[in-house]
């Protein structure tokens, strides 16, 4: 999933991947969101160079592609860590102390929400409700759900991903 990719310049294989994705959706403007989903799945994130390539393939203004990418929280213009961490900030998690979980994670990882650790191992984001309110507060690390958390559990959980 995480092909090393220069943020500013794409090599031919990246361009080929993007072209194939756009073609698989018939280069239709109406399929832009699906194309972005698939591209992010393949390349990890959607920096300007990738958006530009998509715009060229679909023959639409880059501003339009950027408008869509920046509108939806699922699309990211920065790379994620090897283990992306998402803290659920749904209401159920909020009233059961999710904010303190975020603070503890920021402290442990020495990064802020939206950033990646220096070694590229963890990235930290917040999201709205994954629907596991029975386990509140909840975090996702990759696809693993960790629930019923207290701040003192964070250190041990992060250790599992060293």
């Amino acid at each position: 999933m995480h092909t090393p990719m220069n943020k500013y310049e794409l090599n031919d294989s990246h361009k080929k991947t993007i072209k194939e994705i756009c073609e698989s959706f018939g280069n239709k403007h109406g399929e832009l969101i699906n194309i972005l989903h698939r591209t992010q799945e393949k390349l990890g994130y959607l920096p300007e160079a990738v958006q530009n390539e998509i715009a060229l393939n679909l023959d639409m203004p880059l501003a339009k592609v950027y408008g869509v990418v920046s509108f939806y929280s699922f699309f990211t213009m920065t790379p994620k860590g090897k283990y992306p961490i998402s803290v659920c900030l749904g209401t159920a998690c909020f009233v059961r102390g999710a904010e303190r979980i975020v603070e503890t994670l920021e402290e442990e990882l020495k990064i802020k929400v939206g950033q990646v650790t220096e070694d590229g191992k963890f990235s930290l984001d917040c999201l709205r409700c994954i629907g596991a309110c029975g386990l509140a507060p909840v975090i996702l690390i990759g696809d693993d759900v960790h629930g019923r958390l207290t701040p003192d559990m964070i250190k041990g959980i992060l250790k599992q991903y060293k």
Binding site: C129, A132, C133
Partner: peptide
């Protein structure tokens, strides 16, 4: 598109 934080009816 159940976006309401703290709701998981449709998903279930």
């Amino acid at each position: 598109d159940e976006g309401d934080p703290g709701a998981f009816m449709d998903r279930s």
